[in-house]
Structure formats: C-alpha cells, structure tokens
C-alpha cells in the first residue's frame, strides 16, 4: 500500500478517466486493507468498520466493472510493510473519512462526464459506496 497521502495525491492529480479509475481501484483496496486491520470485535469501532469494509469491497468491484479501467495497474510503486498505515482505530477512521470524501467527489464528477454508459454506471455505483463508507466512519462516530 502506498502511503496514505500518496493515494490521495493520485486521486487528486488523475487527469483522465483511466487514470482516475486506476487510482480509485487502488484507493478502495487500500481502504479495505486499513479497515480490516481495525475490525476486531473488541475494538470500539467494530460495527462501523465491518460494515464499511463491505462497502469498500463493493466500491472496488464497481470500479472494476468500468470499461475504461486499464487491465494492468498504471501505478506500480507499492510500499511494503506497514508504512503509512494509521495505527489507531480513530486515526484509521479519520483517514478513511478523508479519503472517501475525495473519492466520492471525483467519482461523482466522473459519473457525470464519462462518455460511456458502463463507465458512468460504474463511477456512480462506486461513488455511492465511497459515500457509504464515509457515512460509517467519516462522521467521528456519530
């Protein structure tokens, strides 16, 4: 997983639809990885984390259906180990919330402007999933 800021940067600077979809796909994957690290039953964020993980996986799959998603990753620099992972559940929730805000915004915009109906539907579905994750973890627990 790239550093948490790296994912946000890729999303922010993606200029074309394939690039955005590539970054979004990886972003959902990163969300899933981070969330699953904090979905233990004795954790304080247990239930929101579990539900958010399902939405993150659904978002990843939605992007996967976009015809314009490149078959191969465009971005190959994957950091090894735990570099950049939020350590605490609260930090993870904050990071997830921030990332989902960007993700939902960019995908919603792409859903409006993408040329093909398959891309539009994929972006729309994925944006909804990002909003769902944000609703579960991005509100500070309320």
């Amino acid at each position: 997983m790239a550093s948490v800021n790296g994912v946000q940067e890729r999303l922010a600077r993606a200029s074309g639809l394939p690039e955005l979809l590539d970054a979004a796909y990886d972003a959902f994957g990163d969300l899933l990885t981070v969330i699953r690290r904090h979905d233990e039953p004795d954790g304080e964020w247990f239930i929101p984390m579990v539900l958010a993980a399902a939405s993150a996986a659904n978002g990843r799959d939605a992007v996967g259906w976009a015809p314009s998603l490149p078959a191969r990753r465009l971005h190959r620099e994957q950091a090894e180990g735990d570099a950049g992972y939020p350590v605490t559940a609260q930090a993870a929730a904050d990071w997830v919330g921030a990332l989902c805000e960007i993700l939902a915004g960019r995908l919603a915009a792409a859903a409006r402007f993408a040329a093909g109906p398959g891309d539009r539907a994929a972006c729309r579905d994925a944006a909804r999933c990002a909003r769902d994750v944000h609703a579960l973890l991005g509100g500070g627990g309320r």
Binding site: E44, W45, I47, P48, L51, A89, Q90, A93, A135, L136, L137, G139, G140, G141, R142
Partner: peptide, 21 residues
C-alpha cells in the same frame, strides 16, 4: 442489526455508524 443495537446499547439514537464510547 439496527434494532438489536438500539436494544443493546444505552444510546437511544444508536446507529450502525456509532463509533467509540
């Protein structure tokens, strides 16, 4: 999940997004 949560937790406004505490 929502109904069982409302019954289980002290917060009368508990939701599936309710976090810590």
């Amino acid at each position: 999940a929502l109904w069982t949560g409302r019954l289980a937790y002290a917060d009368p406004g508990w939701t599936l997004a309710s976090g810590p505490g």
